[in-house]
Design a binder for these strands. Structure first.
Length: 668
RNA sequence: GCUCGCGUAGCUCAGUGGAUAGAGUGUUUCCCUCCGAAGGAAAAAGCCGCAGGUUCAACUCCUGCCGCGAGCACCA
């Protein structure tokens, strides 16, 4: 029996007892973890609720104490429960049988569901994340998106789900057009020139996406004064959308190179993809037409003949009221017949859910070091051999920042209206707030800050202005700082080993920094905080796990096995020791709550819940580490308990960190 | 104007309607002849934006107000 099963049994018992003893039907029983170990391991604040319900059904006014006593007796029947205390205003505090609990925990995996990922028939869900416009390098805000998405993928996988990861490539949008304008009209470059430039950059150890970053900012600045150049944007955009022309070919090269760079950047922090669907295919393979037909047939959209949106196809919404300036309804087809982004997104969402009845063609895009493949969509039939099955997911999670809540709502509602049998619940907008810069961080990047901006608590990053912390720059700085620290501690290691360790620490620092905030919090980026290895950081959690591992490196071989045997042979002694050791006991119970925490993170779609848990577990282990010396412990039974507890904690901590995409280095 | 999000310790943030509201950081003071101090211990620091309401119980739910942010494009 694991913790989740035990909690389930106890809840069931409360419900049964309430029905038998008081004829009250309880639908849900709230359980909570008491604030202190001395107050028990699980609490039911249920007595007052029962008093009310009993009064409602029978009119009889019961004493809460009396009710609690009845429940107490029922719960104590469970052999895993040592005792139950009635406390406070009406709490039912359950104390587990510590020796039985410990013996059970030893045999449990930290994440019991993990084995299910092997199951080919497991339901598949889709997570779309990153989706950086492929016209420049990724900045820290894009990394927040990718880390959130990737961590949520890992969390879903830990609960046994099969997950498909997509990075949507908006290769026919204005942002790409702007960079194309830059190359063609500012730099006067042909495709051949760009390819030569690319080679030259490679030789200089510079990257193409950084070049585009600067060029994009330059174009943005030029637009402010150069109307002629700005007019080129529409022209270029049309050519890109049309395809089969030199401009489209040039654009395709730029897009592909940027995607390669961004995929490489994300790979540095452990983020990988399965499929890169491109907007161009959604247009060329007539995904929109199919979706449009379906929407017309079901009467979900209407053609406006009068008013501001005359000549457009719109989807009516109730969530916004129209004003003089804005129409309430969302335009999906413009009066010139072209489709808006939201329109295309509805078609794409339908495809993801297996509801469109059309499919992409696919080409292999990249193979990661471990052999894992990333595919990209294509309009022409592919000549590749075995192609994996994409799309057709039961649920789709779109990781997109909160500024796009409204169009995402339209997509969700739209799909729900077209397919009422699927409903809106299958489309989940995993929204999060942006990463902004503190005025001082912006100044540190060498930007002139206006007086107006200096008054603000944060400044929004802007690709157009070239204002932002580039992902690779930050990772480089983290790696350099970590390398310095590793060198100071482990001069004996080879450079390669030191670099590898530094890299693991840098990834841990970055991922944890982005995950410790809840999704609704704007992260105001601060260099000092982001580059820190102390306090609530990934490094702290890794260090804790490394310490645990080093204990086991120093212990005799088979120490764990021997300890387990000792535990099973001396139950009464174990119970005696554990009863007195609340600190050890609370580490044991905390370590066994990983699966429960992962489940919470899924239901709240909030990876920060897991990050906080991981930090708390690391902290609890550090406390244990300082107060109990394992190697020098002379009492054999006590030593066995310490070994088993440390082992439980490090297994759980390692599993939690891995679920956050953070590795544990050998030494640090 | 309307919609959504956020106001919690000096600062940055956690906090499924439940017990004395917690972390990190900063400040002050301790602890390494080691299972590695990237650590630990202690102290100080709170009208949980304001005012009502619901409830046995409100930081948490509801209403109003104040402040901050984002959105309300035939951009994405």
């Amino acid at each position: 029996m694991n913790l989740l099963e035990l909690q389930y049994d106890l809840r069931k018992k409360v419900i049964e007892t309430a029905k038998q003893q008081f004829s009250v039907e309880l639908e849900q029983v709230a359980a909570e973890i008491p604030p202190k170990t001395e107050l028990g391991d699980l609490a039911f604040p249920i007595a007052f609720e029962l008093v009310k319900k009993i009064k409602q059904t029978t009119g009889e006014k019961k004493n809460p104490r009396e009710i609690a006593e009845k429940l107490k007796a029922a719960l104590e029947e469970n052999e895993a429960v040592a005792r139950v205390e009635v406390a406070g205003a009406g709490y039912l505090n359950v104390f587990f049988n510590r020796s039985i609990y410990l013996a059970e925990s030893i045999n449990n995996k930290p994440l019991p569901q993990l084995k299910l990922t092997e199951d080919e028939n497991a339901p598949k869900v889709c997570v779309e994340h990153t989706s950086v416009n492929p016209n420049k390098a990724a900045h820290i805000g894009h990394v927040r998106n990718a880390v959130l998405g990737d961590t949520f993928v890992r969390i879903l996988k830990a609960t046994g789900k099969k997950v498909e990861i997509q990075y949507y490539i908006d290769n026919t949008g204005v942002q790409v057009a702007d960079v194309v304008v830059g190359f063609v009209y500012l730099e006067k470059m042909s495709l051949e020139n760009i390819k030569e430039l690319d080679e030259k950059l490679k030789a200089e150890n510079k990257t193409f996406d950084y070049y585009c970053w600067n060029l994009y900012a330059k174009v943005g600045q030029e637009y402010q004064t150069n109307e002629e150049l700005k007019a080129k944007r529409t022209e270029v955009l049309h050519l890109i959308e049309e395809g089969n022309n030199p401009t489209a070919e040039l654009s395709d090269y730029i897009v592909t190179r940027n995607v390669q760079c961004i995929v490489a950047t994300m790979e540095r922090v452990g983020i990988r993809y399965d499929l890169l669907p491109r907007e161009s295919e959604i247009l060329q393979l007539h995904f929109w037409q199919k979706a449009f037909e379906e929407m017309r047939r079901r009467g979900v959209i209407k053609y406006e003949t009068a008013g501001k949106s005359a000549g457009c196809w719109v989807m009516p919404t109730e969530s916004h009221t129209g004003t003089d300036e804005h129409e309430a309804d969302k335009i999906l087809v413009r009066s010139n017949g072209t489709v808006t982004y939201t329109g295309k997104d509805i078609a794409y969402q339908m495809w993801k859910l297996g509801l469109l009845g059309l499919d992409f063609n696919y080409n292999l895009f990249h193979i990661y070091e471990n052999g894992q493949e990333v595919w990209i969509t294509t309009a022409k039939k592919s000549d590749s051999g075995e192609i994996p099955e994409f799309g057709n997911s039961e649920t789709v999670y779109n990781v997109i920042d909160s500024r796009q809540s409204y169009p995402q709502e339209v997509v969700k509602k739209g799909v729900g209206l077209i397919f009422p049998e699927k409903g809106e619940a299958v489309s989940v907008h995993l929204s999060y707030e942006m990463v902004a810069l503190s005025p001082s961080a912006a100044e540190e990047l060498g930007f002139e800050i206006s007086e107006e901006d200096k008054q603000k608590s944060f400044i929004e990053m802007s690709g157009r202005k070239g204002l932002g912390v580039k992902a690779d720059d930050l990772i480089n700085r983290l790696e350099a700082n970590a390398l310095r620290e590793v060198e100071a501690r482990h001069a004996d290691l080879s450079l390669e080993e030191k670099k590898k360790t530094a890299c693991i620490i840098a990834v841990g620092a970055l991922r944890y920094f982005l995950l410790k905030f809840t999704r609704t919090t704007v992260i105001v980026f601060d260099f000092k905080e982001a580059l820190s290895f102390e306090g609530e950081t990934g490094c702290f959690c890794q260090y804790s796990a490394v310490r645990a591992n080093s204990i086991f490196r120093k212990l005799e071989e088979n120490a764990s096995e021997n300890a387990i045997e000792t535990i099973s042979n001396s139950k009464s002694e174990i119970a005696g020791i554990l009863e007195k050791e609340n600190e050890i006991w609370s580490l044991i119970t905390l370590a066994s709550r990983l699966a429960e925490t992962v489940a919470q993170a899924v239901s709240a779609t909030e990876p920060a819940i897991l990050a906080k848990y991981t930090f708390n577990l690391a902290k609890a282990f550090n406390l244990f580490y300082h107060n109990h010396k394992i190697i020098t412990e002379e009492n054999a039974v006590k030593r066995a308990i310490l070994i088993v507890t440390a082992d439980l904690a490090r297994r759980s901590l390692t599993a939690a960190l891995n679920t956050l995409g953070i590795e544990v280095p050998e030494r640090m």
